[in-house]
């Protein structure tokens, strides 16, 4: 195995995290017209971490490749990744189709093979489907080690990777040699804003468009959307004026 690290960072274009999505009229998806889209926040953290690893471990990172699977507009999120410090990128253009995490991981496996990546850093979940599966599925397909919900990543001298992970009730530290997949927790780092000059420069960096049919993967969905609905709204509550009123109201509701 080469002693160089080739990082792959998958990024997803999602409805901006600050927006409340609206369900469409046919109840099978959300409104996308005129809605602001951004890079999935966890993926932004993943790109930031890849760049940080290169900065803090002089000479060990050979390349950082960003990949997105989505509509042609997902080029935007790749430009963000390039502006943040990725060297090259590719877009698997699937149009408006939405894929299961299983299909996504199969595509990512192909990209990994093509890039010869030995470290994959990706978000722990996309904030649209909230599945939280792709990293683990890709690790399963590749037979690699996996470290999910990373809150700290350290590359050791011997090229093993130590990862601090957020788990229920605390943290856990694991160590694994490359190749490895890491998924990011929100506390891993604080992504920097992308400056305009960097964004301009990113336009000159490579962005290859790949057609999914060239990859020879069956992208058929295993899941069928029966319906997508708004959650049942809570009944409007009341406001009280004093602590005494608050306590009596809580008693009335049998909360205490």
């Amino acid at each position: 195995m080469s002693s160089k690290i080739r990082i792959l960072v998958p990024v997803k274009r999602v409805i901006d995290f600050a927006l409340k999505p609206r369900i469409n009229k046919t109840h099978d998806g959300v409104e996308t017209q005129g809605v602001k889209f951004s890079i999935n926040p966890f993926d932004n953290i993943a790109v930031e971490e890849a760049v940080k690893i290169r900065k803090h471990n002089k000479g060990v990172v050979e390349s950082i490749h960003a990949v997105s699977i989505g509509p042609s507009k997902a080029k935007d999120v790749l430009r963000t990744a390039l502006a943040k410090g990725a060297d090259t990128s590719s877009l698997v253009d699937i149009g408006s189709k939405e894929l299961d995490p299983l299909a996504v991981s199969k595509i990512l496996k192909k990209i990994q093979e093509e890039q010869g990546s030995n470290l994959i850093i990706m978000g722990r979940q996309a904030i649209d489907d909230d599945a939280g599966q792709t990293g683990q599925m890709l690790a399963g397909l590749l037979g690699w080690s996996q470290a999910t919900n990373a809150s700290k990543v350290t590359i050791n001298e011997d090229m093993t990777v130590e990862v601090e992970k957020a788990i229920d009730g605390g943290v856990e530290i694991v160590k694994a040699p490359l190749p490895l997949i890491i998924t990011t927790d929100l506390t891993l780092n604080e992504p920097k804003f992308v400056t305009l000059p960097k964004m301009m420069k990113a336009k000159k960096k490579p962005l290859k468009v790949v057609r999914p049919e060239d990859l020879g993967i069956n992208l058929e969905s295993r899941l069928e959307t029966v319906s997508l609905e708004e959650p049942v709204p809570r009944k409007a509550g009341i406001k009280v004026k004093s602590v005494d009123e608050l306590i009596s109201k809580m008693k009335e509701l049998k909360a205490i």
């Binding site: 409805i15 409340k20 999505p21 369900i23 959300v30 904030i127 649209d128 489907d129 909230d130 959307t225 029966v226 319906s227 997508l228 609905e229 708004e230 959650p231």
Partner: peptide, 9 residues
């Protein structure tokens, strides 16, 4: 899905 803003069957 969508941070609990949508309920998917």
């Amino acid at each position: 899905t969508y941070a609990g803003n949508a309920v998917l069957t």
